[in-house]
Simulated assay, not measured.
Amino acid sequence: MPAATAQTLSDLRRSLAEAALRAGPVAGARIGLGVTSLDEALSGGLARAALHEVYAAEVADLAAATGFALGIALRAGHGEGEVPERPILWARQDFVDAEAGRLHAPGLNELGLDPSRLLLVRARDGEGVLRAGAEAARCSALGAVLIEPWGEPRPFDLTASRRLALAAEGAGVPVLLLRVAAAEAPSAARTRWQVRALASRALEANAPGAPAFAVRLLRQRGGAAEREWRVEWDRDRRSFEERSVFDRSDRLAPRTDHAAPLSRPLVPLSGDRQVAADGHDSGLRRAG
């Protein structure tokens, strides 16, 4: 194993050990998303101890897919009562930064994620991202693990997905595999989702509305699938809400080469403010 990789894993294990000391109990074996019809289709919510795949319908929908996955992670890591919220580990391939921009701490905060809760692991290739994600998935102290490779990493196959699923089941931690520029393939994921961006509906005084997504359940092991919901994210309640009225604004967001699909800078796309490589000025915590 290269020295740099060994050091990254060593730092990751140390960060996970620190997280374990702060961990408190989480509620239930399922993660309710807040939309009644959606949770009913999932028999009460997403299985906590499982692997779930979230596909961006197109590369331009990466911000929307990221927002949906982060919403799930936020609900999964929510603590009970005065118990602190659990940290979220995000393993991200460097190439995603090059294509979509680095994580933007103010944007994450706008979505409802305190950047101090985030353990960020960056790797040069898909193999490194999957290795870090598998290591993290074994830590029961985490609220969720988000793994973001670019495209179709050669090491990721049905066997590799089974390892991730088994790690999630053993630790009771949801693992969210965020897929972009990748075709659907057989995997051990409990559910598979496709996400497209919707235009946000403006608030009073034309203020930006809540981030909105069209989410399609493509696969659910042992349950019904091929259903679609149009939902918004309420950052104050940290919950998804179903759009009850479809009006002219309820359409796919316009796509250009110079604009993110969402109308608010909620997730990692930022053209003018980037997180420094060493994590300074960002509030993000890096492991490695």
Rank of each mutant, 00 (worst) to 15 (best):
P2A: 12
L9Q: 09
L9S: 07
L9P: 00
A19W: 01
A20N: 11
V26T: 13
I31R: 06
L38K: 08
E40Y: 12
A41S: 13
G44F: 05
G45M: 04
A47G: 15
R48E: 02
H52K: 10
A56C: 08
A57L: 10
L62C: 05
A64Y: 07
A65T: 03
A65F: 07
I72A: 10
H78R: 15
E80M: 14
P84E: 08
R92Q: 13
A100K: 06
G101R: 01
L103G: 02
G107R: 00
L120G: 01
V121M: 08
G128A: 05
V129E: 01
R131V: 12
G133D: 03
E135R: 14
W150H: 09
E152T: 13
V173G: 00
P174H: 07
V175F: 03
L176F: 02
E184W: 07
E184V: 14
A189D: 02
R190D: 11
R190G: 07
R190L: 15
T191R: 04
A199S: 14
A199G: 12
R201Q: 14
A207T: 07
G209D: 05
G209Y: 02
V215R: 05
L217F: 07
L217K: 02
E226H: 14
E232K: 09
R248D: 15
A253F: 01
A259D: 14
L262M: 13
L266T: 13
V275D: 11
A277H: 10
